[in-house]
Design a protein around this nucleic acid. Structure first.
Length: 260
DNA sequence: ATGCCTAGCGAGGCTAGA
């Protein structure tokens, strides 16, 4: 099963690019983040014409996640559980979990968290606690799973072009990295780094200041695999090509090959 | 170092992203 993740930065603005890429790369499943539309406005028919069924969990203007799959989607759960039942519901559409081929795929758009400190950073850390708790629960179950998407976490100083300049940013700040490592330390495998221990690459380049041209990027999109799924991991590659096209998203796709 | 881009909303210049 070939599974890809891509923060598309608006599915309406990116539809031709995404459809072209699907036709070329032919993943079985694509997890998308920042679709920036409500469920009813998601262009499901265009994906169906390529043989992909779509499930969207969106909201007006911001955020939003969606899964398209050419394998049957056996279940879909558009919610990351709260820490406490008494906590208020999260109005932001950032998580959509599906079951495909006996695998749970959690598609996530983790909060950016800037400016830090502040309410947005507090929300980021709370959201990561929720993800941590949910990962621990999934590990107690029988199904292999992955948690993939835009983590808005740059795991180490090797994962960006200018560590000193970004040290205080919510993507790199020690508390952010610590919360991310705590999730990994439950026993999950970050697929790209596991297979590429010694190279530097990125998944995001800002639109501004010639960041793409200068290769000023960050690696913030990740696949975290449960132990059973990590055993089946065959490859994981960042596909830079879409970032260089016209009307590109500021993120580029990452693709995992999972054996049967 | 961040708003030099880009997108949404909606109709002018805000918010948001990383």
């Amino acid at each position: 099963m070939r599974v890809a993740s891509w923060n598309v930065n608006s599915i309406k603005a990116r539809l031709p690019n995404v459809l072209d890429w699907l036709g070329k790369v032919q993943p079985d499943v694509l997890l998308m983040q920042e679709i920036k539309c409500q469920d009813g406005d998601f262009p499901a028919l265009e994906f169906e014409s390529l043989g992909y069924k779509a499930v969207a969990h969106g909201q007006k203007s911001y955020n939003g996640v969606a899964v398209v799959s050419r394998l049957p989607i056996q279940a879909a759960r558009p919610v990351l559980p709260k820490l406490q039942d008494s906590d208020p519901d999260d109005p932001q559409a950032r998580y959509l979990e599906v079951e495909i081929n006996g695998v749970i795929l959690g598609n996530l758009y983790l909060p950016n968290g800037n400016p830090r400190p502040g309410d947005k950073y507090t929300y980021k850390l709370e959201w990561m606690q929720r993800l941590h708790k949910h990962a621990a629960k999934l590990l107690q179950g029988d199904m292999p799973f992955l948690l993939a998407g835009d983590y808005n976490i740059c795991p180490t100083d090797r994962d960006l072009y200018d560590p000193a300049g970004w040290a205080e940013d919510a993507l790199c700040y020690p508390d952010s990295r610590k919360a991310y490592r705590a999730i990994l330390n439950l026993g999950l495998t970050e697929s790209w780094r596991a297979l590429h221990p010694n190279i530097q690459d990125y998944t995001f380049w800002d639109y501004q200041a010639g960041a793409w041209f200068k290769n000023h990027g960050l690696r913030i999109d990740h696949f975290l695999l449960s132990p059973a799924l990590a055993d089946r991991l065959q490859s994981c590659e960042i596909d830079r090509a879409p970032r260089g096209l016209e009307k590109a998203s500021d993120h580029t796709p990452i693709v995992c090959m999972i054996g049967d």
